[in-house]
């Protein structure tokens, strides 16, 4: 496999994990605009764990655990607490960006030197197993949502919460569980960045990937399998940007390349015609 495709896959994997988690949460009827913050928390946790002696796989696990807690915290405010999830998510990004920057400075001191961590070892095609596994997660979610009883309850929480309550289910419980799972996936996405693409942590290392993942969910019209082509497209655009940046002299303004993933996501949103396919109770409080 050529270098370009390997890098495109490597860059698509964190997006795909985060977007799959977000899709799961949105199908349950809630929404986490602060996915960028959750990814940052995962990235920092993996970095901190690796710096304190954990191997890369243990660091990945530590990030997943931090993500579970982050998802539970979000649910406490936006699901059980019934505060507006969009507004909670906006504040969430501030807390996560500030919190990881604060913790990084405590960990690294004021030296400003780059602290490297050990990257995940390659498994096949020059890619680590975790990055490859990311491409199967949407399929697992598809099966879960369409073929299992808890999956159907989750879809009911997002489409018809009152019906779920009427049949004895708890919308708060389902959405909280979805938020916890989404937190873990988002954090894993962030961790994957630190443990593969750039084996160090810098403030804002996620560089807007959480926001791109939010757009991917709309582009996929809330269908898990459709996340894969979207993530590959954005991953490919980012890989192209890296390549052209290194090559230089294309005549196209540098700014356009930097903005390419964001522009692509914006066009994808426009092409998806907005909320077509959205869960009917998306963003509404639990009954």
């Amino acid at each position: 496999m050529s270098g370009f495709f390997a890098i495109a896959l490597l860059l698509a994997a964190p997006l795909l994990l985060a977007a799959t988690g977000e899709l799961l949460l949105e199908r349950a009827g809630s929404i986490q605009i602060g996915l960028e913050g959750t990814m940052l928390i995962g990235a920092f946790t993996a970095f901190a764990a690796a710096r304190s002696g954990a191997g890369p796989h243990a660091a990945l696990l530590a990030a997943a655990c931090a993500g579970l807690l982050a998802g539970a915290a979000f649910a406490a405010f936006a699901v059980a607490g019934r505060a507006d999830p969009i507004l909670v998510g906006t504040a969430w990004n501030l807390v996560a960006a500030g919190g990881t920057a604060f913790s990084y400075r405590l960990l690294a001191g004021a030296t400003g030197s780059v602290l490297e961590v050990k990257a995940l070892p390659p498994f096949a095609f020059g890619l680590p197993a975790a990055a490859l596994a990311a491409f199967f997660v949407p399929a697992v979610l598809e099966v879960f949502l369409t073929r299992t009883r808890p999956g159907l309850a989750l879809v009911a929480a997002g489409d018809n919460p009152l019906a779920l309550e009427a049949t004895g289910g708890s919308v708060v419980a389902v959405r909280t569980a979805a938020s916890v799972a989404a937190g873990a996936l988002g954090a894993l996405g962030g961790a994957l960045l630190v443990l593969t693409v750039s084996p160090t942590f810098v403030e804002g290392v996620t560089a807007g990937r959480g926001f791109l993942a939010l757009a991917l969910v709309v582009f996929a019209r809330w269908k898990p399998l459709r996340l894969v082509p979207g993530a590959l497209l954005v991953g490919g655009a980012t890989a192209l940007q890296y390549r052209l940046q290194a090559g230089g002299g294309t005549g196209i303004p540098y700014a356009v390349f930097l903005a390419l993933p964001g522009l692509l996501a914006l066009f994808a949103l426009a092409a998806a015609r907005g909320r077509g396919g959205a869960p009917k109770a998306l963003g509404t409080p639990a009954p």
Partner: peptide, 26 residues
């Protein structure tokens, strides 16, 4: 096109930041 402004404005933030980054080098 019914695109929620929450999402599009977030992406426009990313695009603006990228544009600034490119413009001050271009």
């Amino acid at each position: 096109r019914g695109v929620p402004e929450v999402l599009s404005t977030i992406l426009l933030n990313l695009i603006a930041a990228a544009a600034v980054s490119g413009l001050v080098r271009g």
